[in-house]
Design a protein around this nucleic acid. Structure first.
Lengths: 102, 102
DNA sequence: CATTTAATGGACAAATATAGTCAAATATTC
DNA sequence: GAATATTTGACTATATTTGTCCATTAAATG
């Protein structure tokens, strides 16, 4: 199961880019990119969008990994993380219906 | 589908407590409690634990609602929130296995 | 193996988000 | 309509996140 940072590093190396090249494209410091790739820091949503563009990934593909990874790490230390996700699912479905109605 | 704030308000009223009484027990300003009950502000995890104690709820019961509610609102505006949750579930399961092994 | 180049670590600063308070304005109850 | 309870909004404090700089380490190259 690949982490977002790993995916980014792989893609960067596939393209033969150096940290500083990709960092420049994303418009961040190369040290920060290094940390993101190694999972020491999290990217922002905006940066994930940029990565998708630079790597020509399907829109939302990396974002899906990113969002779910954040959630997973947020709750992994909790009592019943799986239950939390199931209840969250109920709530999302409920909220969507609500929105549809109005 | 009840929101955390609503649950708190119900419980408080069941016990016949005023905002300022419960606020004192939880050790926050009553204005903040008012906002939490109406969903204008979010409680902290620590406060949720206190609410569980004050209301003699099963440990983790309110926390489950709280955590899942936060997640639901975090992703409701995203493209495929349900997919996000499913992938998050995979990741949680993966992380747990990892932990077990070491 | 010495130099150059790339990547990483750590301390700090800036920006943003969250939590909390106070006092005034509203609403509710008697 | 006075007293009590709740809500609102502006503001401050605190915590967290994001980003940069520069020193250090690691890797590659002549």
């Amino acid at each position: 199961m690949k982490q977002v940072g790993e995916i980014i590093r792989e893609k960067r190396e596939e393209k033969g880019l150096l940290l500083r090249h990709l960092a420049a494209e994303i418009d961040i410091d190369q040290a920060l990119l290094s940390k993101i790739e190694r999972g020491e820091r999290k990217a922002t949503k905006e940066q994930i969008v940029k990565f998708e563009t630079v790597f020509a990934l399907k829109k939302g593909e990396l974002m899906l990994q990113y969002l779910s990874e954040n959630i997973a790490y947020d709750i992994i230390e909790e009592k019943n993380p799986i239950d939390v996700l199931h209840v969250a699912e109920d709530k999302v479905e409920y909220l969507r219906k609500q929105n549809k109605r109005k």
